[in-house]
């Protein structure tokens, strides 16, 4: 059987360890931090490419973000995606889960002809994992979250996916078309092929859609379309700790630690 489109949602995130918070202005200083493709989205793309290798179909990456994400989408092309679309519009800024899932679902509908949609389980910056099942609801298709593999796609339009659960995993049978959220670290994303990378950087034409291209009105998206609002940001102060430092030979340290453990237990 040949699968129809396999669509992968992708986000670019700042590298968390490089972010700084300014407690005075209550803003996050993103400037200093580098960016990367959200790690779980890379696992989703890798899984999509593996599904394509087995069952056919075209892998299309879709993203909602600012124009500077273009090189990251080209990186996805270099990894093996067949096409990439960036939904980019100032009106989308400030969108919470509701308008974000609406926008991505509209983009997916516009791409059309899909059998499988894969998302990363959550983004490393927002990290709530509510987007995948939200997209599935807009599209009115079934979904499965926290999957580590698509084990089988059968001719009767059903797939078996491996889902991580408390203490192990289960196999869920799901009807096509479906959406799945892919677990971070479940596979090793491939490195881009050098030639394809050069082609992607020089020749590949990224498709860019605006909110209007998706038939979205400004009221439906951005802050206006959001159903939650951030009313304050608080810096989390580290708890007061004793901060006693011990140095010395391994023998001395082991002695001190043994004593310490005996005294507090």
């Amino acid at each position: 059987m040949g699968l129809r489109n396999i669509i992968v949602t992708m986000k670019v995130v700042p590298k968390i360890e490089e972010l700084e918070f300014d407690p005075e202005t209550k803003t996050i200083k993103r400037g200093a931090a580098g960016n990367e493709i959200n790690p779980a989205d890379k696992n989703a793309l890798e899984l999509a490419l593996r599904i394509k290798d087995r069952y056919g179909g075209r892998v299309i990456v879709v993203s909602m973000g600012p124009p500077f994400w273009e090189p990251y989408l080209k990186l996805a092309i270099a990894m093996g995606a067949d096409d990439a679309i960036l939904v980019s519009d100032r009106a989308l800024a400030g969108s919470d889960t509701l308008p974000t899932t609406l926008t991505l679902s509209k983009a997916i509908e516009k791409i059309g002809d899909y059998d499988i949609i894969l998302c990363g389980e959550e983004s490393s910056d927002g990290g709530t994992g509510q987007v995948p099942s939200g997209i599935a609801e807009w599209l009115d298709i079934p979904h499965v979250t926290f999957i580590s593999d698509v084990m089988d796609v059968s001719d009767d339009k059903k797939a078996k996916v491996k889902r991580t659960i408390k203490g192990g995993h289960e196999v869920v049978e799901v009807t096509l078309p479906f959406l799945a959220a892919v677990e971070l670290g479940c596979n090793t994303p491939r490195f881009p092929d050098f030639r394809r990378k050069r082609w992607a950087e020089r020749e590949f034409q990224l498709t860019v859609w605006s909110a209007a291209d998706l038939g979205l009105s400004p009221d439906e998206v951005g802050l206006k379309g959001s159903a939650t609002t951030v009313v304050d940001l608080e810096e989390v102060k580290p708890p007061t700790r004793l901060k006693k430092k011990y140095t010395g030979s391994a023998e001395e340290l082991a002695d001190k630690l043994a004593e310490l453990l005996k005294s507090i237990m």
């Binding site: 972010l19 918070f21 996050i28 990290g127 939650t228 609002t229 009313v231 989390v236």
Partner: peptide, 19 residues
Amino acid sequence: MGKVPGFGGNIMAVVKCVK
């Protein structure tokens, strides 16, 4: 209204449902 740890737990965002 709930507090949500953001950016790896350095910051707490106070979030409300408004709609």
